[in-house]
Structure formats: structure tokens, C-alpha cells
Amino acid sequence: MTQVGGNRVTPAPQASGAPSEPVVIFDDVSIAFEQKPVLENISFQVHPGEMRILLGPAGVGKSVLLKLTNGLLRPDSGRIFVFGKEISAMHEQDLFELRGAIGTVFQEGALFDSLTVRDNVAYRLSEEHLPEDEITARATEALRFVELEQTLDKFPSELSGGMRRRVAIARAIVTNPKLILYDSPTGGLDPITSTTIIELVMKQRDVSHTSSIVVTHRLQDAFVLAMHHFDRAQNKMVPLPPHQTDTNTTFLMLHQGRLVFDGTTAELIHSTDPFIREYIS
């Protein structure tokens, strides 16, 4: 489903056709570190199948917002709901269970350097004590998705930066999570590798329809995600027709700890806010 121009379209409903509950709700969330406010009064929602691209200058709190989403950090005030559960009020032990349904791709991959690629990808499955055959099959399948099934027995240190990032994506998707959080998935990578990673992120969005929050400070990546879709027949991303954007991809922008934008691609492009204009120019 695509939209022309700047009209905001309700995110894809579930199979039943009924409007679905948001996957993530931030309700007036604030957090400070050592008395220094990092995020203030943040409110937004992520609907099923929706990809929210979080933009903002470096150090504005984008990664903090992601860590709040999976409960790695707790807000000082406000409430955060994930899959309808208020995670800001949950006990740490209950959060471990919930996080099983959330995939996270960290900034530098954060692969376990003493485990092989197979064991990294299959980490969650091993924790669930699945049979070894099933673990190997699912890890291989996830690695095939990122086109790295030949690296099964390698260690992370034997892989390039881009390959490590792809393994991190495989690790995030191996349990078929309902929500994926990408923390600067292309940060520090060359343009060609970045495009490969963005294509994978898009593939996950358009093939599996997983809800996601993508943190990036690279506008080019953000607009590629908004203006392309993944074609399963060609097995690659293709541009949408002119003036069309992906309706399930919307934007959030942080500036000085506050959410200064929450809207569609067209609304972002046509925004008159001086900061946003300067940021996207």
C-alpha cells in the first residue's frame, strides 16, 4: 500500500481488517542522566507493520529511545507500552520474557565475540533449549536471509564490519519477532555495504511486515527506505513510482531531547520548521 503526496495513511490493519492496537506507545516519556535531561516529554506510537525512522543529530538521544523501547533503560517519568504491556512498570525478570519477542540490532552489531556466527544467530533458540537440528536449520535460514549462510562456523572477528552487521540482523530476526529495533544499522559502513543493509531492513519490512524503529542519522538511508520497496520476484529493492512513498514508513525527529516531528515522508519534506528544513537540506 502506497500513498501519493503528503496524506497520512493509517498503517496496515491486521488480517482481520479491524484497526489494530499499537505495538509501541510512548506516553510523555522523559529521562535524564546525572540531572541532565536527555529525552523530554516524548510521545509517539508504532502500529503493526509500521516502520518509524528516527532521525536526529548525533548525541540527541536516539539510542536511548531504543533502549527505553526494549526496557534496557527505564524512564524517569511517563509510560511506555509494548505489545499492550506497560514495560516501564514491569519487573526486570518479566522483561526478559518480553524481549524474546523484540529483535534488536545494535550500533556495532554487539555480536558475542567468543561464539561462532551460528551460535550468535542461534543464541535465543539455544536459550529455549530447542533441538540442535532445528537450531541449525533456523540459524541457517536466518543467515540465508542476509546471504551469509557460508559463514556459519566463523567467528565475528573473521568477518568484515558489514558482514557483522548482517549477522546481527540475522540474530534479530531468527525468532520472527513482532518488533525490530535497528540502532544505526549503517553507521560507519561504506555506501555499497550500507545499501546492502538497507535492502535487508526493507526486505524484513516488506516481506515479513514486521513493525520496526530504525535509528539513523543518514538521511539518504531514510529516504531510500521511504521511496523504495522490496520486490520479492526480483529479490531486490526497486524504486516506487515518482511522487509515491511507502505508507508504512513514517518519520520521527528528535532535536535537543524533544520530538520535533512525527509524520509522513511528504510532511517531512514539506515541513516549514527551520530546524527540519536545515536538517534535511
Binding site: L72, Q93, F96
Partner: peptide, 14 residues
């Protein structure tokens, strides 16, 4: 420092 502990928590392990 390499965020592996955060990754472990994010993967649902204490």
C-alpha cells in the same frame, strides 16, 4: 564496552 551485555539482555537473558 562492546554492548554484548546489553545485547544479552535484549535477547532475553539475564
Amino acid at each position: 564496552v562492546t554492548e554484548q551485555i546489553d545485547a544479552m539482555r535484549a535477547l532475553g537473558t539475564d
